[in-house]
Design a protein around this nucleic acid. Structure first.
Lengths: 196, 196
DNA sequence: CGGATCGTTGATCAACTTCAACGGTCGTGG
DNA sequence: CCACGACCGTTGAAGTTGATCAACGATCCG
């Protein structure tokens, strides 16, 4: 049984966007389930329709697809307090091309489509909350496109290193390479250049 | 003075996501202004804080920034029934690095920050509407990242050509090159290959 | 007619990949 | 507790993709 404390940080996150009282929050959490995901375990696999949205309480998720060369290509990480889902599959109810996998042992809140729709109807403040969350996520995705277009792969690495130094410690190098869109070999070369 | 018909398509767009009656819509449009933008005219310039959101009724907008080599890099187009704003600057109230410019003579609905916030408080259905719009836009942005990472520049062009054949007719080639992240010279070479 | 803008062409150059090989580390089974 | 294999990071040579630069033609518009 999930305890109150487990949800405290979720309440804080909601609180960043909308005002919410103790009572209503107690109602809201009933729409969610808590789930533990082992390292390397998949929350979503290619071919499935994504019907669930995940909120990371602790740990780290990644989203990737298999490109035509058969190589995993990571497109996204989700740390604590980030939402992770495959929106395209979720919205269009089409089979996804993505996997969502735990990089570390991870604890998430999950909410499926049915519960999500009920939640939004029953609690208008959550409509506002998700509007804010998606607007912010959209802004972040747009800035990411700007970064990709505006910099060489080498610069991307240095930017990323500067912006998320702690994260680089946390994730193995070949996953970082995959996320940056370079081969592990080239990332290794970039790193060599910058230490010498 | 804007006429009722001018807003008809905006009503249709809202109607795709939420149910709305004639009366409420009549209220809602009072929060917006209509604006005509000439070709090459800027709706936003680098250094400004973006406080306005635009809905394209007719025409075409593009968003671009100037990269460190002094070259315009297009990151986004907005056709009819798309929203265009610089979300990052809008959300954080920081000076933007982007320009928003009309590619064709364009007619937009505009809503500034103050009116937007009032609109959302006065009309909860619009909170839902924008939640849906941003969720969809976020999904599109994520798929775009997938496309960029999963294909060579040449493949990107062919994909784009296949998905938006009409659009390619509409936009000059150097802008398309800029959007795809290639030089005009290289796009020219790609096109030569595919006709021969 | 004249100038700006846009698309094209070809040669050279830089960024990044591919491939093959090697060494270190970690976890698991014996 | 050791040994083995899997996994990961590194190195270097050769190859590919796409950029840069300079020049030229075509078109459009004043």
């Amino acid at each position: 049984m999930p305890t109150r404390e487990m949800f405290e940080q979720f309440k804080d996150h909601i609180g960043k966007f909308v005002k919410i009282d103790e009572q209503e929050f107690a109602q809201i959490i009933t729409y969610f389930r808590i789930r533990f995901v082992d390292r390397k375990e998949n929350l979503l696999e290619q071919g499935q329709v994504c019907n669930v949205n995940y909120f990371v309480l602790e740990g780290l998720l990644r989203k990737f697809f298999i490109n035509e060369k058969g190589v995993q290509q990571t497109t996204e990480f989700a740390l604590e307090n980030w939402w992770m889902t495959e929106n395209f599959s979720y919205l269009h109810r089409t089979p996804t091309e993505f996997y969502v996998q735990a990089v570390e042992n991870t604890r998430v809140l999950s909410i499926d489509r049915t519960a999500y729709e009920e939640l939004l109807l029953d609690h208008p403040c959550m409509e506002r909350y998700f509007r804010c969350v998606y607007q912010k996520a959209y802004a972040a995705a747009q800035m990411r496109v700007k970064f990709i277009y505006g910099h060489s792969r080498e610069e991307l690495y240095h930017q990323f290193r500067q912006n998320y130094p702690a994260f680089i410690q946390r994730v193995p190098q070949f996953l970082l390479a995959s996320f940056l869109g370079v081969t592990p070999e080239y990332l290794s070369e970039i790193r060599k250049k910058s230490v010498s």
